[in-house]
Amino acid sequence: MSGSKVPYHLRVNKYVDRQLFLEVLDHVARYQPIREMGYISMGGGYLEDFRVLHQAYGIQKMLSFDLDDWMIKRQKVNRPYGFIECRCASSTQIVRDFIAIRDSLVGADGKVIVWLDYTEADKRYDQLDDLENLMKKLIPGDVFRITMNAHRPNFGTVDRYNLAKKADETDAEDLDEWWNRQLVDQLNEYMPTERKGAEFIDSQYKFAVTLGHAIKIAAQNGLRPRPSLVIEPLLSVVYADKQQMITMTGIVLERARRDEFHRLVGWNEWKYLPGEEWDNFTQLSVPHLSVRERHQVHDLMKSVGTPEYVSQLDFRLDGTEEVHASMIEQYVAHYRRYPTFAPVDNM
């Protein structure tokens, strides 16, 4: 289900995304204690996120779930701490039984962090449906996070399109239109009505924005029966290690306490605000650098953020100067979050 068969340290951008998640939780920690919260997520084979969240905040009430029994068996071998419960269940089942799960984990009024870490591109409707149903059961102070596949070619490559066109299977005029029709069909009522045209899927980034809006629709739909509650978007990230993915993180608040939240967490200090529409994505494309290359960049750093050293490096990451420069900039923006170790406890 969570498909994260590859460990974090081999997926630079997913790792950086998770570091950003931890940083925004640091802000949330000024509003409410994180330590007492429960953590529910799809741990994959290594439960790396569980280890990190326990290390950072001391969270102990943890539940990892996966659809596949063999994965749960593997989790039980790899789980870093005995207090992590591993359960064989689909996210739909977890959401269905959420009240009971919360109760057994942290009590009826205890708060939780839930991460729906999806990878499949062909199940977006079910994923959004799960999110909507999850929102119906969240309470103020709960943090939710969803990862979704945002890689257009999963609808079919250009070759596949040309074949379909030849076989008269589609009358879509171009690839974008072909993708767009599939997306509109797939998202159904979650499809953002204002982005239904093919022009909104003519780049990977625009597709990410559309999916982001769909996530917002699903989440807010779920909260609709309780107008006194509101979702504060915390972080929206788009990244690609191989396939483009998006993650969105938010917290449920009482509307009346929103200003207080902003004040207490130092909202203006948070560099990666997603904005009212949740679509101001933090774009990650941090390159892989060798240890020597990293040290060279670090040596040239006088004050963080000055780009002059880009030209002084002895190596190039790309033949085109602009591409090289933007890769180095990405690295410099996130070097503190770069996975610099291979976690020994997982090897």
Binding site: T193, K216, I217, Q220, N221, R224, P227, V230, R255, E276
Partner: peptide, 19 residues
Amino acid sequence: PEIVREFSPDSNFLIDLHT
């Protein structure tokens, strides 16, 4: 106040209206 809430991005109202 309830209309301000509906017309703000926190609500899906404008999306529903569009549909």
